[in-house]
Amino acid sequence: MYKVGVSIGDVNGIAPEILLKSHQIIKKFCTPIYCAHQELLEKISEILKIPLAKDMIFIPPNAPIPMIHIGKIQEDSGFYSFKSFEKACELAEKNEADFITTLPIHKFAWKCAKINFVGHTEYLSHRYKKEGIMMLGCEEMFVALFSDHIPLKSVSNKITKKNLLEFLKNFYHCTKEENIAVLGLNPHCGDNGLIGNEDFIIKESIDKINKILNKEIFKGPFPADSAFSPPMREKYKIFIALYHDIGLAPLKALHFYESINITLNIPILRTSVDHGVGFDIAYQNKATTQSYINAILLGKKFKEKNEQSRL
């Protein structure tokens, strides 16, 4: 049975509730190792009135146990969530975990704790000196992001043939998928240059990478406003969006509770929930667990697929 290192996320949000509610399900598929102090989870289980299972395995991070300030942004919870994540990475690097799954952190709490990374993916890219690729979705549909947590005004400058070719090459080698829709950037894919020239670069990059791979792997670019229509979703299951919201807004509208997040192009396998800390419903027993369970199951599926491909 695979071992999964679970980082606890921000303890002031819904992450601990999801962790406690899901343990009995998760342990049927994987052996979870919780990167947290047992005393902390004991305290939280008392607050939530969710029993702490006796078979839970804890490997605590190198951080003080934070105070619980329900629904609040706090420096100590931000620091603890980062160190929990760091510990999960260490377990994977030492082969003490087969993959890691992360529960939601609060990005501003990281900033308060002087953690100089916007989020999980940026830290992973820094740690492993490789550009992590963020892909989100579920069995019905996945969306990969060419640019993720950067200002919208910076996206256009990032769209160069060199950057796109590197991204498309890495994405193909990570997924081995062969029918991928690439979205355009401008309305109507630029209307032949009437609304920007970036879509010409996207088309040239698609043609070039397909020639390099000697296969028609990548299709497009497709106008983003119609890319997620029912006929398109029947034809394609994997989409590449040039910036964050154009890909994730339709994904979350369609599959908010089931979607997960996976980081590609790094040496370890990391999956995550595709939602935030839920401060507005924290400690109210209202959090849904489906995204977390799906993240664990996808990690298991990826490990099985990789092992089969090596046979």
Rank of each mutant, 00 (worst) to 15 (best):
K111M: 04
C89Q: 02
N170P: 05
L152G: 09
F142T: 03
T101Q: 09
G71F: 13
K87C: 07
A53F: 10
L48S: 03
E131K: 09
I73K: 10
D98N: 05
M56I: 11
E75I: 15
A92E: 03
I44M: 01
K129V: 03
F167P: 01
F146W: 09
I105G: 05
K49V: 07
A97Y: 04
S154E: 15
S77E: 09
K54E: 08
L136P: 06
L91Y: 06
G119N: 13
E42R: 01
I65P: 00
K83Y: 14
M134I: 09
C138N: 11
K72E: 06
E86C: 14
K49S: 12
F85V: 10
K130F: 04
M56A: 11
G132Q: 09
I100N: 00
C112L: 14
M134P: 14
A144M: 02
E42W: 00
I65F: 00
K169R: 12
S156C: 11
I150C: 01
K87Q: 08
D98Y: 05
S81N: 08
G137Y: 04
A144C: 09
S125Q: 09
F99D: 02
H106D: 07
N163S: 03
K111R: 13
S81D: 10
I105E: 04
V118N: 08
K153R: 08
A113P: 15
K83P: 15
P60S: 05
S156M: 08
I44V: 02
L41V: 00
E46P: 00
G137S: 12
I59T: 14
F99C: 04
K130T: 15
G119L: 14
E75Y: 05
K169Q: 14
L152R: 06
A88R: 02
M67D: 10
I47T: 11
Q74P: 02
F85G: 05
E93P: 04
K72V: 03
P64L: 14
D55M: 12
L91I: 12
I115F: 10
I47Y: 03
K49F: 12
G119M: 05
I65T: 04
N163W: 00
K158C: 04
N62Q: 10
E75M: 15
S125I: 06
I47L: 15
K114A: 12
E96C: 07
K72G: 03
P151K: 05
D55K: 12
F82C: 04
I57H: 03
M141I: 15
H120M: 02
Y123P: 01
